[in-house]
Design a protein around this nucleic acid. Structure first.
Lengths: 152, 152
DNA sequence: ATCTTTTTGTTCGATTTCAAATTAATAACA
DNA sequence: TGTTATTAATTTGAAATCGAACAAAAAGAT
């Protein structure tokens, strides 16, 4: 009963698109699967990472950083604040903004787990050679350009 | 007040990892952003796409296909079944399995929207040349191998 | 100054999602 | 046969997530 479909071959675009999404999904799961040990979600970790590497940020910028909606950032920050890993500080100049900063505990946590995270990432990416990693990065960066920015 | 951090430079692994996840996220949003017009979620679309291209499948295999848990598949199929786009058919040989099949309406819907989807994907991926798309696919495929398959 | 628009963050309702526990069916095997 | 283990799907409870509507603050226009 296995009906042989007239397999219209997938376009190269579709195949590369699918491969991109699949690998990103798989790699992300591999890297993040042990975040639960510290009771962190991927988004929460992303926030801590951004604050760790960039410093205090507005919620708006955090949303752009981890590619989520501002509505989502609100709840993620809420939960991090409940655990006292970050703190909101109202901006005086423009009172619409909150600066989000790491608390000492938050800083301590991310400092503790970040090196392991980086090691895991390197380990996973080492399935590719350095040259291939460089190539992959170039291609992904190029894919990010706005649609209108295409020239041919 | 922008405090200059002693920027320990990111490893190539981390940079390529970040680029991969970012671009996958952005590209996925670009491609899927108009699914709402047909009241479909990304997962629902993924199910319809798989059934369209591969034919009837067990829930277990659908989960593997769209990289979600079987628990999640249950609710996604529930919702598709409510709209009568798919149907569960109990497998006779082994009654633990359900075959999920497209209903005529489901088949009609996916046939209608799939060409547009493919066109969008090709359009988005055309930010890369054919050669680059091929290269990207190769690299992503290579990344998917199980960790144990590494030799060093 | 007052009205309008834009921007930031919050809230709300609905859905997705997961992990863990559970149920049902089958397989393995003594 | 009966017991145990495995597997497929469901349920449950919690959290993430989105889009849309909303409030507060600031900026701009006249």
């Amino acid at each position: 009963m296995k009906q042989q479909k007239r397999t219209k071959k997938d376009s190269l675009g579709l195949m590369s698109f699918t491969a991109l999404l699949r690998s990103a999904n798989i790699i992300s799961n591999e890297v993040h699967k042990n975040l639960g040990a510290n009771n962190l979600t991927v988004s929460q970790f992303g926030i801590l990472e951004a604050l760790h590497k960039i410093g205090p940020m507005y919620q708006r910028d955090l949303a752009a950083q981890i590619l989520k909606t501002t509505g989502n950032i609100t709840t993620v920050i809420d939960n991090l604040e409940k655990r006292e890993l970050v703190q909101r500080i109202r901006e005086m100049k423009d009172r619409r903004y909150f600066q989000v900063v790491l608390t000492p505990e938050g800083a301590k946590l991310i400092k503790k787990i970040y090196p392991t995270h980086v090691r895991r990432v390197d380990q996973v990416m080492d399935k590719l050679t350095k040259g291939e990693q460089e190539e992959l990065k170039q291609l992904c960066d190029k894919l990010e350009q706005k649609e209108s920015a295409k020239q041919d």
